[in-house]
Design a binder for these strands. Structure first.
Lengths: 198, 198
DNA sequence: CTATTTATTGAACGACCATTCAATAATTTG
DNA sequence: CAAATTATTGAATGGTCGTTCAATAAATAG
């Protein structure tokens, strides 16, 4: 049997509307009724597809991971040697591209939920881990082909990630776009430095 | 005239109850009624002291800043030369002390609000800036007395902070306490390295 | 001690919340 | 085409929300 076409479509549509509404109203401020209004359907229809609000949030986190993973895929497919892939990836990670992928307010709200709901923590941890492993794998490839010198790819990937996490947390505390861009650039240089590139 | 003694006490008491409740129920899940229940008073009494929920949140953010600033003060007063102060400070910043000061869930929820409410952004930015400046001032003192070599104290302070922000964001994605401690230690070493200490 | 201000209670308001349920419309299956 | 399943509506439920208001208790001021 499986899910019919319309089921998959509706579910995706609902998650998208959930995200859109959450951008405006905040993740916790977004009710099922508001999502329904965005889609011009009845609230009960949303409940028909997602049995609870927690299920909706889980789906939203999954959606978020998909978006981030796409950047990895794109960086891989656009180049053909490991070094060029790595440079392309780092360039995208430390750019507006990456930051604009998912609304900051929604992202940090979801992150905050991790501390109260173990299921969300597991979900979020998995995203983070998947992304780190993706980078680690690429670093290992670059090391093996002699492009970079990286003794411990996993550790280096982790370091790049806490530079990344810290940078985005930090730049949102700066008032002007100019300052933000400046710091983003700074961090990117630091990342390349850590990798022994450029 | 000014605020009477009982006013100051009650207001502080309410903010504390707000925090306690938010730790359990989440920042956005904490209603005025729940705070009132925690204190065993009427909801309307809370409204008497804080005209709106936003005022309450603002007070909570202020309370948070006070806590963090205290760590700076303590680090300063416990030692008498700049270098010892700096070492003491970095040690505390990259330790459970710092992390346990304020609940992570509440902290990141408040941070997330910054993206929807400009008043909160201003407030939060100010906290962050104040802390960075405190560190920058200390770095400058250390540089002048020749304890460390720091050309641009402000930039270095910023770098320490995005290492700090990133580290705490990152370690909460790790499952075991052991892994978390390991990474915290790693980051602390990196911080000392960045400062040319140890 | 009286008048005034402040603290506190308790009830009430309309708005919105997540969730349930039965009824109807559309689609799929046999 | 008929039966069964799925999609969708619309109304209803009990609960909580932030906020308002008038009444009472306590504290302060003159």
């Amino acid at each position: 049997m499986g899910l019919s076409n319309i089921t998959v479509l509706r579910k995706r549509e609902i998650v998208k509307a959930f995200y859109q509404t959450a951008v405006k109203e905040g993740l916790e401020g977004t009710s099922i009724a508001k999502i329904a209004k965005t889609l011009e359907i009845q609230p009960s229809l949303i409940v028909h597809y997602y049995k609870s609000k927690d299920e909706l949030i889980t789906a939203l986190i999954d959606h978020c991971l998909e978006l981030y993973l796409k950047i990895f895929e794109e960086s891989y497919s656009s180049k053909n040697d490991p070094r060029a892939m790595l440079v392309a990836l780092i360039n995208r990670m430390f750019s507006k591209d990456w930051n604009d992928l998912f609304d900051d307010g929604v992202y940090y709200s979801a992150y905050a939920m991790v501390f109260r709901e173990p299921a969300f923590r597991e979900k979020f941890s998995k995203i983070h881990k998947t992304l780190r492993e993706q980078l680690s794998d690429l670093l290992e490839k670059c090391d093996q082909s002699g492009e970079i010198n990286c003794e411990n790819p996993s550790l280096t990937a982790n370091r790049i990630f806490f530079l990344l996490d810290g940078t985005y947390f930090f730049i949102n505390m700066l008032s002007t776009q100019k300052e933000q861009n400046e710091h983003l650039k700074q961090s990117k240089l630091l990342a390349f430095e850590m990798l022994g590139l450029k």
